[in-house]
Amino acid sequence: MSQPTHAQDHASTPVLVHDPSLRDGHHAVRHQLGPDQLRAYAEAADAAGVPVVEVGHGNGLGASSLQAGKARLSDDTMLSVVREALRTSRMAVFMLPGWGTTADLKRAIAHQVDVVRIGTHCTEANLAERHLGFLREAGVEAQGVLLMSHMAAPERLARECARLVAYGASAVGIFDSSGHYLPGDVTERIGAIREAVDVPVLFHGHNNLGMAVANSIAAVRAGAGILDACARGFGAGAGNTQLEVLVPVLERLGFRTGIDLYGLLDAADIAERELMPAPPTIDSVAVVSGLAGVFSGFKNRVLDISARQGVDPRDVFFELGERQAVAGQEDLIVDVATALREARGG
């Protein structure tokens, strides 16, 4: 069943929905999803007509490690299972240079991946040049994304996205990695990027301040053509934009997604039943993480380390925000917690 539309102001505008539930959701379960879980959700998302399904370790290809968390399954196994489960949906992967390598990309290509996203810190698009160039030469659709994008001004984000396009990205955009944005922030940034590039622009939201759906709507109204969302919001910290809420909201506004509502709701029910102990919630730590502008994927590590050191995790998040910590700097959590303990004479 398709969602009926009431507003037709955007009736001719399609929006491509990209579903990273099986990648970003891994953060919420310490990267421990098994093959049956991956298969069950991939088949349900495919049946609903979700255009793109992303899979992998939460930090992307090659990231399974003691530092970022050991995944239950290898990249090869995850890609193989999901590739087999998808009939019409396209399969996507994510990679951060430094965690993943060209060798990881070659293995993903061998698994017939359809879309590859290369992510960098918001001011370091140059780190994606080699990998985007490789993918362009390999004939694989490649997208470039800027993480922790609240740390840069709109004009800087626009310049970095223009670099990603020059390197070979067929779509570019920003991640609200810490759930820090309000809708006005998104409008300004997406608008600046839209003016700077001639490829589709994407937005990936997190829900630390309860704004993920509103921010996604702000993004698409500002010209974004690709929106990320996860079933039940399954993702790092307070979770991502909630897929089965975003799609009917888009349809009510007149945007076209091509996703079947009942199939989507069924997929979300399967996700809640099969993938997660409970749907993400905006707890106290998540709020502080969003306010501090700290990567949502740090949540479990901050809680673990704070408990061992006997310090308040909220203090750790605010200090990490002051130090402008980014993904890949997980070791800094230990330094911060230790410093806080010593400062109080512990």
Rank of each mutant, 00 (worst) to 15 (best):
G225E: 14
I217Y: 07
A219W: 01
V199T: 08
A229T: 01
M211Y: 11
A212F: 02
D198H: 12
G205S: 13
L209C: 10
L227D: 00
G210I: 00
G210S: 10
L209E: 11
M211N: 07
L227T: 01
L209Y: 01
D228Y: 00
C230K: 08
H206V: 06
A212R: 02
H206K: 04
G223S: 13
H204A: 12
N207I: 03
A219H: 07
N208W: 04
I226E: 07
H206N: 12
G205I: 02
G223N: 05
D228F: 01
I217G: 11
V201M: 12
V199L: 14
R221T: 08
A214G: 09
V201T: 07
G223Y: 03
A219K: 04
V197M: 11
G223C: 08
V220M: 13
R221L: 07
F203D: 12
L227H: 01
L209Q: 15
V197C: 11
N207D: 14
V220E: 07
G225N: 04
G210A: 04
R221D: 15
L227M: 00
I226V: 12
G223L: 06
A218T: 05
R221C: 11
A219I: 02
G205M: 10
A218W: 03
S216W: 00
L227N: 02
V220W: 06
F203S: 06
G225K: 01
F203M: 14
I217S: 02
D228M: 03
V199R: 06
G210E: 02
L202D: 10
L227W: 00
I226M: 09
L227R: 00
L209G: 15
N215V: 04
A222G: 06
H204P: 15
P200C: 02
I226W: 09
L202Q: 15
V213R: 09
H206Q: 13
G205C: 09
N215Q: 10
L209A: 08
I226D: 03
A219M: 07
D228S: 05
A212T: 02
A214P: 09
D198S: 15
V199W: 10
V213T: 13
V213C: 12
V213S: 02
A222W: 00
A222L: 08
P200T: 00
A224T: 05
G225V: 01
A219P: 11
I217N: 09
A196S: 15
V220L: 10
V199G: 09
G223D: 10
N215S: 15
N207S: 13
S216E: 04
S216H: 00
